[in-house]
């Protein structure tokens, strides 16, 4: 077996413990370097690395002025160079195998939520990439989710500035085949791949909040 990140052969030591473990497609040194978090003071809510002179997280302050605050934001990986390269390969060179790698880091109590809802990608992006990068990780981890939203947005988020993203109207709408009213009084988890400014997930949450769930939490694979 090879490591799906570095493609080197995995030579795990066989002992009584590892013998019965499911073999993982990631070598221990890649696992170590992917799970590293950069040192520094972070925002307790969105986990962003803060400037020395920042009393409160500027991003969170900014978002709270425009959007309802979610219950909790969870993030699996720090967005350092190794993780950045992983997402570059996973999203832009279509290295779909990396979904299995990301799925290994997925530690979230999905059972506590009534609905886990991944952020959708547009038809154009889907045709280009061939998969929804968020759903594919959930699939690889065997997590049940609801395909509740759709988007017509095509411009890459990474090509837009913060104000552009904000001024564009909320691109997320409920899918016709999803019974949105069922969200009322329910606990919802929104799942996305990368949390940069947070505007994307907050927009999706805004759409979901309109159906009055009791709680919306957010899970992102990586915090930029």
């Amino acid at each position: 077996m090879i490591c799906l990140y570095c493609h080197a052969d995995i030579k795990e030591e066989v002992n009584l413990i590892t013998l019965f473990e499911r073999s993982r497609p990631l070598c221990s040194s890649c696992k170590m370097s992917l799970s590293r978090w950069r040192e520094g003071r972070r925002c307790k809510f969105c986990h962003r690395l803060m400037q020395a002179d920042e009393a409160e997280c500027a991003d969170c302050l900014f978002l709270s002025a425009y959007y309802e605050r979610p219950g909790e934001i969870m993030s699996m990986l720090d967005y350092h160079d190794t993780v950045k390269m992983l997402f570059h390969r996973y999203k832009f060179t279509k290295d779909a195998a990396l979904a299995e790698v990301l799925a290994m880091f997925l530690e979230c109590r999905f059972g506590e939520y009534d609905f886990s809802i991944p952020i959708p990608v547009s038809e154009v992006r889907l045709a280009e990439r061939g998969y929804n990068q968020t759903e594919m990780v959930l699939d690889a981890a065997g997590v049940k989710y609801h395909d509740a939203l759709f988007t017509e947005k095509v411009t890459r988020q990474s090509e837009l500035g913060k104000m552009d993203r904000l001024s564009a109207k909320n691109p997320f709408r409920f899918k016709a085949d999803f019974n949105a009213d069922a969200l009322e009084g329910m606990k919802v988890l929104v799942v996305d791949d990368i949390y940069t400014t947070g505007i994307t997930v907050h927009q999706a949450a805004e759409t979901l909040f309109s159906k009055k769930p009791v709680k919306i939490d957010m899970l992102t694979f990586s915090k930029a």
Binding site: I2, L4, H7, R89, T93, K94, D95, A96, A97, L126, A127, G130, Y131
Partner: peptide, 25 residues
Amino acid sequence: YFYRYYSRFHGSDVTYCLKCVSIGR
């Protein structure tokens, strides 16, 4: 160095080469 997965989008299995995936699949 080949990876195969089921692609819902294509409605079939997709096999791709891991050796040269870094320069586009």
